[in-house]
Design a protein around this nucleic acid. Structure first.
Lengths: 336, 336
DNA sequence: CCGCATAATCGAAACGTTTCGACGATTTCG
DNA sequence: CGAAATCGTCGAAACGTTTCGATTATGCGG
């Protein structure tokens, strides 16, 4: 492996000149820079990561803590991990993956051995031990999601409350007064995951405020549960004309399947909105109006915030991303 | 952050003594070791990763190259990434995630900057540019999957041919003579992904050898495609009494849904085997006999092989994992 | 034409480890 | 009982960078 010494020798300069030429921190004669660039090219030189970590104050590595909880939808999880990795590369950062048990203990380990410059926390629950940990470590860190206690934390997330409100507002505007909400797995609400309850209660409140009847049912991923949940909602709201789905892709396609079987037409008989979904709803049958959960946006912002923390100019705060509504034809106004 | 100097000072010894006490590479008096351990504990000392990488010959980091291709089933993908990370930790290795465009170019980058000791390649296709790359780099590397050309490569994978044969053998043993195969997305077969065609042709060959009629159809993930594919198979094999599914979870549950709708009973009217699945089939309705695709086994072995390469005692070779058949009641003998 | 700011380059120190060779102090053994 | 082997410890070098002064060459105003 070529070192900076090799480059210096080939270019006929000292190593400090090479270093300055590459970092651009001091002015270098054009001719010299050219020779150095050539040597670098020829030798395929890349600075040794260890040496750079040791000397410089940066490791150019970020830890991403991504435990896979039961009830977490794997594709969504994956989408976030990938988005973080991609966003990090924009700043010349690599990503170290901490999962499972290591998702918590690994944080201390990599922080104390100065392996990483910062930490990204994914899939935080309300009372997440990792939040205290990063507070204590004092390392730049950004949480994707909003835990119960956000003091001293930098967080980014979709504005789930606003998203729920947008769903209700739109449907009420279209004349709907009986609106169901199909939620995630019961476990998700119990485990203390943060956004599902947030969405659920904002939904109920907005419904109450605008004078609509709403009801809620969680569901597991198997078809029996989905049918049961749908029936429960239908029973509670016999006049239901609109349904908001805040759940996984398989569940959403099962619901559409149930509707087809029962001859319930979308949107003529039932208006449907897919809320906070990480997947494309336009290949569903029919395509569903959706408020996307923008993993790329959240993660890009999370990385940007972490970089700002590294630069030292940002105070802990919570940033909520404004939801957007995408119309694909699965809602219509009520016609009596 | 505490350094080895701090530990040495607190314990009242030289830094080399501390280093030897921690690495165990030279004998140390019990009393001294005790004082050192105490100091380490008290200071929360962990060796600086950069310094260790620089001096030692190991970085204790592995790169895992995991591009997410179109047509790749995200949960399966995620399962492999997690398994690699978990297995690596058993050897005190961390995992650096290379995805998307960086899945290829990042390999050279992290290798040439000596950031990683080895590389794990996931989801390789027949002609994968990454295989040439790792051959050229000469860094310890293990491929999970089997590309077209395996010379000079260390590969681990489920024995897909054997799995296909097991399916056919079992069904023929049970008296079935008309056996369908429902495959993955057409794209997967076109892209040059390796195992789906391997499975498919072994399936056909074994069918021919045992005198069974077989037919094959790929399918996309939407319900229209699934129905079409199922109908195509049924049309080609009007007497079909058994179906092997080598496809994603959503597709498999859609098929079960179709069967329910049409009143086709499992296993009375149709025996079903779920082949090479990364998910649990026992929560399906009904639970399906399955030959699992053991991500943890493959990845654990891949990491072990990489560690052996690091130790310098293993030659490039291909290792195939023997499939296992799990009976859950979705197959039965033909009754006329 | 002299002194001085500026540009371009260099040498050396420092980052925190690991590891080699050295050196007393014990122990072993012929 | 003396030489040799072993044990426990230490100092110093080396890994490949970055960066801080220092040094030399160059251009400029007075």
């Amino acid at each position: 492996m070529a070192t900076i010494h090799d480059v210096a020798r080939v270019a006929g300069v000292s190593i400090s000149t090479v270093s300055y030429a590459l970092s651009g921190k001091r002015s270098i004669a054009d001719s010299t820079r050219q020779r150095i660039d050539d040597a670098v090219q020829q030798l395929g030189y890349l600075p040794n990561a260890g040496a750079r970590m040791l000397k410089g104050t940066r490791t150019n590595i970020l830890a991403v803590s991504a435990p896979l909880h039961a009830g977490t939808y794997a594709p969504a999880h994956m989408t976030f991990v990938l988005s973080v990795a991609t966003a990090a590369r924009e700043y010349d950062y690599d990503v170290l993956l901490l999962t499972q048990d290591e998702a918590t203990s690994g944080i201390s380990r990599v922080a104390q051995s100065s392996l990483v410059d910062g930490i990204i926390l994914l899939d935080v629950s309300n009372e997440d031990p990792r939040t205290d940990l990063v507070r204590r470590l004092g390392l730049p860190a950004t949480v994707v999601g909003v835990p119960a206690e956000t003091d001293g934390l930098t967080c980014v997330d979709l504005d789930f409350e606003r998203a729920a409100e947008m769903c209700v507002e739109r449907l009420v505007d279209l004349g709907h007064t009986d609106i169901g909400l199909l939620g995630q797995a019961p476990l998700v609400y119990k485990r203390g995951s943060n956004f599902p309850p947030r969405f659920r209660s904002a939904f109920a409140q907005m419904g109450a405020r605008l004078g609509a009847h709403t009801t809620f049912a969680p569901t597991d991923e198997d078809s029996a549960s989905v049918v049961a949940a749908f029936d429960r909602i239908s029973a509670a709201l016999p006049e239901m004309t609109a349904l908001v789905m805040h759940c996984n892709e398989p569940v959403q396609s099962m619901v559409l399947e149930i509707l087809r079987q029962r001859g319930i037409r979308v949107p003529e008989d039932l208006s449907i909105i897919s809320a906070c979904s990480t997947f494309d709803t336009d290949h569903l049958n029919p395509p569903l109006d959706v408020i996307p959960l923008p993993a790329d946006k959240s993660c890009t912002r999370a990385i940007a915030l972490t970089m700002e923390q590294l630069a030292g100019n940002v105070d802990p705060h919570v940033e909520l991303i404004e939801p957007t509504y995408v119309e694909l034809g699965s809602t219509s106004s009520v016609t009596h």
